[in-house]
Amino acid sequence: MSSFELNGTTYETDEDGYLVDLGQWNEDVANYLAKEEGIDMTESHWEVVHFLREYYEEYKIAPMIRILTKAIGKKLGKDKGNTKYLYDLYPGGPAKQACKVAGLPKPTGCV
């Protein structure tokens, strides 16, 4: 396990850099994790992060990419519910990278 310190608080992460305690997540943590991933957060990035957090709260699972694109398409529109759009935002893998920034566990099936 690893950890990082931010604003006087220590955050533990697993071996892949995902938060261990999902309850510690906040937008400062998201910005820190995004920066570590080489992502400059925009409104579009936040839209995906907030969508993922709502999805996780409802289903208690981080969605795989196929499920993510379909669910985003239903809620945010077809233009955002496609892999090209999501990969443009999160080039390291939309489900994997966006879930990390959102403070969620690594999606099932992600390597």
Rank of each mutant, 00 (worst) to 15 (best):
K35M: 13
E15C: 12
P105T: 05
E27L: 03
K74N: 14
E58Q: 13
I65K: 12
G103W: 02
V29C: 07
A71T: 04
A34M: 12
A30Q: 11
K80R: 15
Y59D: 07
E58H: 10
K100L: 09
D28Y: 05
E12G: 09
T69Y: 13
M1P: 08
S2I: 10
M41P: 08
D16H: 14
Q24T: 06
L52R: 04
M41F: 12
A98T: 06
W25K: 09
T10C: 06
T108R: 15
I72C: 07
L6W: 05
D88Y: 13
Y32L: 09
T42V: 11
E57M: 03
E27M: 08
L89H: 11
G73W: 08
N31W: 12
L89T: 04
G109H: 06
F51A: 09
K75E: 15
K84E: 14
K84R: 15
D79S: 15
Y87S: 15
Y59T: 15
L104S: 01
E43Y: 09
G17E: 08
Y11A: 07
L86I: 05
Y32R: 15
C99I: 03
P94H: 09
E36G: 10
G109F: 03
L68A: 03
L52S: 03
E27K: 14
G77T: 06
N82D: 12
G92D: 10
I67F: 04
G8C: 06
G8H: 07
K78W: 08
P91W: 08
S2T: 10
G92Q: 02
W25L: 03
G93R: 08
H45N: 14
H50E: 09
T9W: 10
A98G: 09
D16W: 12
T13R: 02
E47V: 08
P63W: 10
K106S: 03
G38E: 11
Y90R: 12
V48I: 15
Y87C: 04
E54P: 01
N82V: 11
L68Y: 04
Y18D: 01
A71P: 01
E36C: 10
G93N: 10
G38D: 09
Y87Q: 14
F4N: 00
T9I: 14
T10F: 01
V48L: 13
G103V: 01
E54W: 05
I67T: 14
V101M: 08
E12L: 12
N7P: 04
K80W: 00
A95N: 08
K100C: 05
Y18G: 00
